[in-house]
Amino acid sequence: MFNPNQVIQKIVAQPTVHATLTFVARVLLAYIFIVAGWGKLAGYSATVGYMEAMGVPGALLPITILVELGGGLALLFGVHARLFAAALAGFSLVTAFLFHGTPEDSIHFMKNFAMAGGLIFLVLHGAGQWSVDQRFEK
């Protein structure tokens, strides 16, 4: 009997496919943080205003940019990926509640939860073959 799970497992067990998909997953997770961090840097004063309107001190913006942009770049290149994935997962959950906790913003709340789930998966499985982490582990 045809079992799609077994077919997919055989495909992703191939080293090149596994390495490629792990890299693509890491890039996709990193992308939103890099873009968000850069956007906050480019629109610094507007972001301070938004944060303060939400009851979060604007003085935290440099740390936010560092977490998003720095953490996103670390994921992109696979540098201490487990550590940065854990930090970004926590960041995603905290910001879900601070900035997206209203019913009219529920899609962003769920997006942050989904990102945290993907990041936790990265914590469990690491950055993969095409990463700086892998080069250091050899």
Rank of each mutant, 00 (worst) to 15 (best):
M1C: 00
F2C: 02
F2W: 13
F2L: 12
Q6L: 13
Q6W: 08
I8S: 09
Q9R: 14
Q9E: 13
I11E: 07
V12A: 09
Q14C: 05
P15A: 14
P15Y: 14
T16A: 14
F23N: 05
A25V: 00
R26E: 00
R26V: 01
L28D: 04
L28H: 06
L29F: 15
A30S: 14
Y31W: 15
I32K: 05
I34G: 10
I34K: 00
A36R: 03
G37L: 03
G39K: 08
G39W: 00
K40D: 00
L41V: 00
L41W: 15
A42H: 12
G43D: 11
Y44E: 01
S45V: 01
A46E: 13
T47A: 11
T47Q: 06
T47W: 06
V48W: 09
G49N: 06
Y50N: 02
M51G: 06
M51S: 03
A53M: 08
G55P: 10
G55R: 10
V56N: 06
G58I: 01
L60S: 13
L61V: 07
L61G: 12
L61E: 07
L66R: 04
G71M: 08
G72L: 09
G72I: 01
G72M: 06
G72R: 05
G72P: 01
L73C: 07
L73S: 04
L75Q: 04
L76V: 11
L76E: 02
G78R: 04
V79S: 08
H80G: 14
H80L: 14
A81F: 11
R82A: 13
L83I: 03
A86M: 08
A86T: 03
A86H: 00
A86Y: 00
G90K: 07
L93M: 14
L93F: 13
L93W: 00
V94M: 09
T95M: 12
T95R: 07
A96Q: 08
F97S: 09
F97G: 06
F99W: 09
H100M: 10
P103E: 03
P103T: 02
E104Q: 12
S106H: 06
S106Y: 11
I107K: 07
F109Q: 07
F109K: 06
M110G: 05
K111T: 03
K111Q: 02
F113W: 13
M115I: 10
A116V: 09
G118D: 02
L119D: 10
I120N: 01
F121K: 04
H125Y: 13
G126W: 09
G128V: 09
Q129W: 11
S131T: 02
S131F: 04
S131W: 02
S131V: 01
V132W: 14
V132D: 01
Q134A: 15
Q134P: 00
R135K: 08
F136N: 09
E137S: 11
E137D: 05
K138C: 01
